[in-house]
Simulated scan of single mutants.
Amino acid sequence: MTRVLFLLAPGVHLLDFAGPAQVFSTAADLGLPYTQHHLGETTDIPTAQGIVLTAATDWPRSSPDDLIIVPGWRAPTLRGTGTFGAAALERLTAHHAAGGTVASVCAGADALGRAGLLDGRRCTTHHDVQDELAARHPRAIVVRDVLYVVDDRVVTSAGIASGIDLALHLVASAHGPAQAARVARAMVVYARRNGSDPQASVMLRHRDHLDDVVHRTQDALDARFSESLRLPELAAIAGTAERTLTRHFRRATGMTPLRYQQLLRVERAEHLIEQGSTHEAAARVVGFEDARMLRRLRARA
C-alpha cells in the first residue's frame, strides 16, 4: 500500500491539491493500492478559494514506498508565502534521503527548494514564478514552460491543472501506462505525459480523444500488445465492424491499430534494452519473432 501524504500550506490552491488527490482516489477506486493523508502545521488550512480544509498535524511513520506531495499556494511572490517551519522541511529531506519520492505542484517547488531538494536538480514551477524560483535557489536547474520534470525522485510540476499530469505520470511509473490511462479515462481528462521528455508514452500520447470504440480497442492492445491480435478480434472487442474500427482508429490516433501495437512494442522493447536486455531478448518479450523487425521499426520511428 502506497500512502500519498499531502503537505498543505495556508492559502493552498484547491486544484493544486484536489487534482492529484482525485487521481490517486480514482486509482484506489480502480483497485490500485493508494491511501491518502492530509498534513499541515495547523489543523485548519484556509485555501486560496476560501474553503477551509482539515489536516492532521501528526505525521504517520512513512516508508520509501510512500509519496509526499506539496501542492502550491497563492503566491504573487514566493518570498513570504508557503511558510513551512523547519520541522516540515526536514520531513521532506528525510523522506527523500530514505529513498522516497517527493513531488510539488506550482509554488510547492519553493518548499522543496528550502528543503535543499532542488540543489543540482532539474525542476519547474508555474511560469509566473519561474524566475523567482531560480533566483531564490541558484543551485536549482529551472526548466521553463514544461508540465513537469522528474529528477532523482524529485518531481515538480508547473501549476494548477498540471498537478493532474504529474499524478498520472506517477501512477504510470508505478503501475504502467495502461493503469494511468484507465484513471484518466475514468476522470474524463486527456491523459498527457509531458515534461522533460515530452509526450514520451505512446499510450498516453494517443489517448487524447473521446472515441469509446477506439478506447476499447486501445485497452485490449495496451494489455495484450505482445500477442498477435488480428483486426477481426479487435473489431469484436470494440463491438463494431472491421472497416468502422479502422476508420475510427485512424481518425482518433492518425494510425492503424497494427501501427499502434507496433509502437507499443517498440517502446517497451526500448525500455528493456535500456535496462540491459539484448535486442534479441527484448524483441521476443514484446512479441516479435526476432530482432530484425524491432530494428526496422526503431529506425523508422
Rank of each mutant, 00 (worst) to 15 (best):
L147Y: 06
L147K: 05
L147W: 04
Y148V: 00
Y148Q: 09
Y148G: 06
Y148M: 13
V149G: 04
V149Y: 09
V150Q: 11
V150A: 13
V150L: 12
D151T: 05
D152V: 05
D152T: 04
R153V: 12
V154I: 15
V155I: 14
V155H: 12
V155E: 01
V155K: 13
T156N: 06
T156P: 06
T156H: 06
A158Q: 10
A158P: 02
A158F: 00
G159E: 07
I160H: 10
A161F: 11
A161Y: 11
A161D: 05
S162V: 03
S162W: 00
S162E: 01
S162D: 04
G163Y: 03
G163T: 07
G163N: 05
I164V: 15
D165G: 06
L166G: 06
L166A: 07
A167R: 02
A167W: 04
H169S: 08
L170D: 04
L170G: 00
L170S: 02
L170E: 08
V171K: 04
V171M: 11
A172M: 10
A172S: 14
S173A: 15
A174T: 02
H175Q: 10
G176N: 01
G176E: 00
P177F: 04
P177M: 11
A178I: 14
A178W: 03
A178S: 14
Q179M: 10
A180P: 06
A180S: 12
A181S: 11
A181C: 11
A181H: 07
V183K: 03
V183S: 01
A184G: 14
A184S: 12
R185W: 09
R185T: 13
A186C: 05
M187D: 09
M187S: 06
M187E: 08
M187A: 12
V188I: 15
V189N: 02
V189R: 05
Y190N: 12
Y190V: 05
Y190G: 15
Y190H: 10
